[in-house]
Nucleic acid binder design. Structure first.
Lengths: 343, 343
DNA sequence: AGACATTGATAACACGTGTTAGCTAGCGCT
DNA sequence: AGCGCTAGCTAACACGTGTTATCAATGTCT
């Protein structure tokens, strides 16, 4: 059992002043109400005793917890796909630099809807960052409409939301240009998630638009649905290539899925990129080291997390962000998994 | 701005009782001191008003935050290797099921040493789980010696520590048996981290022991040092295979590194498993879907996180865990990346 | 009937901090 | 001397909850 906690009262007694003075010295950094000499004495006493203010008492009186909540929707995705982790890292790091703490909470899809309220109503957190928000999340929408300080990493297409997303359309059209310029005419796609996800449908639309600009189409039977994992990429890859063996290029929903597609192609005796071109998504750190090195679209998840934190910080300080919906521009990275189409 | 918070005082007024009664009803679940009918009235009032106790006030009076800290040493590892994320998931999920919150804090290797104190002394957390603890972390050792409720995921070899690790020696010896039985005689290794890490040195020793049992050795020049990432795996793989082209089997420090070794082998014109056998470590979800499917050692990170949580929970309730140092047994998973040695 | 036990609810304190209104002493000015 | 002003500090309140000692009311037993 640790020894008795040292309180501001102890510091006051040691410095020969009142507790109020201690509080003033330690918090009102630049107010000149305190004599230089007294200030020194207090600071020294606090230092000698190793005084750390009790966060609970401070929270209670200030109404602020200096803590933000990080909600991870469907946390099991963390297990299979590394992208969410990148965002999490960005959020944690940025908040650490701002002196804020981060409370992480997973939100199972079928779980209790009270997760938000437990955090918000108990005043345990000052603001919230929500990863991969689902449009059907009524508790979330309710918070947005209450104007609670909240930033989405993703979108639920609500007019009042503050969010950070990627503008996937331009970069995907650019990627399509690249693939088409290599001579590919029959292109397939494997989504990273069920089509009920807003982002997934948007990406398919972008691929269609890109192909359309070249007089080509994305056939409905050249689309397979994945679920973030390599396993789903393998399964979807097999299904797609068996149904449409004429397809010569595939857009994978993310790099993790691309791993599975590579193995599916191998299983069917097709070599990448000679017999099949493959484009990933996210440019996770392993992407350059797959065999062959993966052509992919780079989404900087760490940066996304940092921007989200910065926007939340603005809201916590009462300022509404200049741009409520930030859209980051991914880069297209050409490596070795895309090549000329066979005749 | 949200409306005024609802306090236990409001609930009391609505139910026509005192605040103390409200508190008794809501906390002392089974105490029969309260009349059935009064209890009902209070519960209904609380429900109608949507009352949630203020966590700060509760912390202040109870001295407990119902929150644990999760310290991630060297958090940038999160970016490249997925294993830490598995543990994080296990910790978050287990704590959620216990009704505890999780505060995540990264601990940069060169960062301020005050991270622990900020969390502990401010009473923001009740206990701590430390991922990948470093033996040189004096602040951590000091907490261990103070008997602060703390569980390591990893080890600093301190007699007083409570930790969860993997018994890697038996499974690595088993893996060596497998490789040797395939006819391999010249075996190399790529570590997952600098050799200053305790676990790394232990694993190398296990490989040596395994080879020694067959009259073989792990040559010093057949060892390369990696740093968790695929990139380091590629670099180390190239270096190792160039220096010792006679090596026919490689143990990679983790699956992420194995990805890089696969590409290094490919770059040197060596096919796995025909020209080179490769063993990974961790069995991350993508391992079965690499090309070829990776033979590896399965460490269940989620389980490790859950066990750590359970042990911390014991300590928080004043019980010291029955086994202070739990060692989990990994499984050896044979897939397609290991094959017969060429003659 | 009166002493007494029991049930049910409450007043009052404690937790440790931030902050505001106010107090004291010193000083300058008329 | 008397008055006002300022610099420097402090007393006192507020934050919202958990818990204990206490009190009122009701029944029970002799």
């Amino acid at each position: 059992m640790p020894t008795k906690r040292v309180t501001s009262h102890d510091v006051a007694r040691r410095a020969g002043v009142s507790r109020a003075t201690v509080s003033l010295v330690l918090n009102r950094s630049e107010s000149i109400v305190i004599a230089k000499e007294t200030r020194e004495r207090v600071l020294q006493a606090a230092d000698e005793l190793g005084y750390k203010p009790n966060s609970a008492a401070r929270m209670l009186v200030s109404g602020q917890s200096e803590t933000i909540g990080l909600i991870v929707s469907d946390p099991s995705i963390l297990l299979v796909d590394q992208f969410v982790t990148q965002v999490l890292y960005g959020v944690e790091k940025a908040n650490r630099q701002l002196g804020l703490h981060v409370l992480v909470a997973g939100l199972e899809s079928g779980g209790p809807g009270s997760t938000y309220d437990d955090l918000v109503e108990s005043r345990r957190i000052d603001g919230l960052i929500v990863l991969n928000p689902r449009a059907g999340d009524t508790a979330l929408v309710s918070l947005i409409e209450k104007d609670f300080p909240l930033v989405l990493v993703g979108s639920v297409r609500h007019p009042g939301e503050v969010s950070v997303t990627f503008a996937t359309r331009p970069v995907l059209m650019k990627a399509v240009d690249h693939v088409v310029s290599l001579g590919h005419r029959r292109v397939g796609a494997i989504t990273f998630s069920p089509r009920s996800f807003i982002a997934t449908e948007a990406r398919l639309a972008a691929l269609e638009a890109g192909l359309h600009a070249h007089g080509l189409a994305l056939d409905a039977d050249a689309i397979e649905v994945g679920d973030f994992s390599s396993e789903s990429g393998h399964r979807a890859g097999l299904a797609l290539l068996n149904r449409r063996p004429d397809v010569t290029a595939i857009f994978a929903g993310n790099d993790t899925i691309a791993i599975g597609v590579l193995s599916a192609a191998h299983a069917l005796g097709r070599t990448v990129p000679q017999d099949l071109s493959l484009v990933g998504f996210d440019d996770l750190p392993f992407a350059p080291w797959l065999t062959p090195a993966l052509t992919t679209i780079r989404t900087d998840g760490v940066h996304q997390g940092q921007i989200a934190t910065q926007m939340l910080f603005e809201r916590l300080n009462g300022r509404s962000p200049a741009i409520p919906r930030v859209r980051l521009e991914p880069d297209f990275i050409i490596r070795a998994s895309t090549g000329s189409a066979k005749n």
